[in-house]
Structures are given as structure tokens and as C-alpha cells.
């Protein structure tokens, strides 16, 4: 069993419902965001602000944060979820520097780093992660990488850094575009 987020960018409407559902469940500080929704640049999707990458933590196969953290505050569960231990964190932010995907976030008020833990507390209780439950269109789901097979799934969509050694677990379905009429360029 290896949990991973699956983001269907064809269904994602960039509403930030996933991000806000997370803030809601964990009562995050106003400026703190564990899940970011990045609009795709026009060079990638030709309509500005109409396709998105919703990313929290990629719970990578070889997580950089686990090796970077001097206090061993990151552990990877058998199901792939990378969990951050707030108690032992000393806020050195080496993980923030090292994670290519910007998953760990530093809180100046707490003096510690925080990050998405795939709602492991909810998964262990048989519930979906907050962001997955919060996704209004069903674009964001979780899959078991060990047995999930579907056509058109990619690991590295455009707009997302390729890090083969780290191997992020998140998977994507790419967005589509409509045929347009009446548009003067």
C-alpha cells in the first residue's frame, strides 16, 4: 500500500477549496498554507489562470526532507506518507531549503516548520484527507500507487520540476482545452 495524491487537472477548477479545507481542519494561521494551488503559465496552458497544479506534499519515494532534517523530525511510514514531528522540530528550515516542491513551510510564530501529512490521522480513522474530501469537483483523490493503473497518468506534468531520484508520489492527469469560436486573438 503506497498512498499518493492523484490530481486530475482536467477536473480541477483552481477554487482553492482543497487548500482552505486543510486550513479549516487544522486551524492554520492566517498566512499559513499547506496546500498551494499554482496557476499554470500561459506557456504551458494557453488560457491564463484556467489550469492549476494543486500541491501539498508529494510524500516522495526518497524524500529529501528525511535526509536533510538534522533532528530526524521526518519519518516515512510504510504506506509512503512522510510525517513531520512538530515536537522535535527546531525550525532550522533545512527541509524548506531542500524540498524542491516547497512542501514544508516555516511558521515564524511557532518557530517550527509544518507540512501536509496527508491527514494521516484521518486516514488511520478510515476517513479521507481533508483536501480530498474538500475537493468539490472530485479532481483530487488518493490512490494506491502499488496497484493503480490508468491511461494518461503522468508523474511530471509541465510546470513541475522533474526529480527522478526523489520520485514524488503525486500523479496527474493533464488538462484539456475546448475548441473555440468567435475569439479574435
Amino acid at each position: 500500500m503506497r498512498y499518493a495524491f492523484l490530481l486530475d487537472m482536467g477536473k480541477c477548477i483552481g477554487c482553492r477549496g482543497c487548500a482552505m479545507a486543510c486550513k479549516n481542519f487544522y486551524n492554520l494561521e492566517p498566512e499559513m498554507v499547506w496546500r498551494q494551488v499554482y496557476p499554470l503559465a500561459e506557456a504551458i496552458y494557453p488560457h491564463s489562470g484556467r489550469a492549476f497544479l494543486s500541491l501539498s506534499c508529494n510524500h516522495c519515494e526518497h524524500p529529501v526532507c528525511v535526509t536533510a532534517c538534522p533532528t530526524a523530525s521526518y519519518t516515512q511510514r510504510a504506506d509512503g506518507i512522510v510525517v513531520h514531528n512538530m515536537e522535535t522540530c527546531i525550525g532550522c528550515q533545512n527541509c524548506v531549503r531542500s524540498c524542491p516542491y516547497g512542501a514544508p513551510r516555516y511558521s515564524a510564530t511557532l518557530g517550527k516548520v509544518q507540512k501536509c501529512g496527508m491527514c494521516w490521522e484521518r486516514l488511520d480513522a478510515g476517513l479521507l484527507p481533508s483536501c480530498v474530501l474538500g475537493c468539490v469537483t472530485g479532481a483530487l483523490t488518493i490512490i494506491n500507487l502499488d496497484d493503480y493503473v490508468a491511461p494518461g497518468i503522468v508523474q511530471y506534468p509541465a510546470g513541475y520540476p522533474v526529480m527522478k531520484k526523489i520520485s514524488p508520489s503525486t500523479r496527474f492527469i493533464l488538462p484539456k482545452e475546448p475548441v473555440m469560436y468567435g475569439v479574435k486573438p
Binding site: T88, I90, G91, C92, Q93
Partner: peptide
């Protein structure tokens, strides 16, 4: 001064198994 928890800096010695930062400290 870079740490969020400067008084717990000694804990940076924990992850000598994997972290180069631990070794640096």
C-alpha cells in the same frame, strides 16, 4: 539565530544517520 528553537539546537545532532547538517553541527 537562524533556528526557530535556538535553545533546542543540541537536538540537531540526532540525525547523524542521514543528515549532513547533523554532521555539520
Amino acid at each position: 539565530c537562524h533556528l526557530g528553537q535556538p535553545f533546542q539546537a543540541y537536538m540537531a545532532l540526532i540525525n547523524l544517520g542521514a543528515s549532513s547538517l547533523s554532521w555539520e553541527v
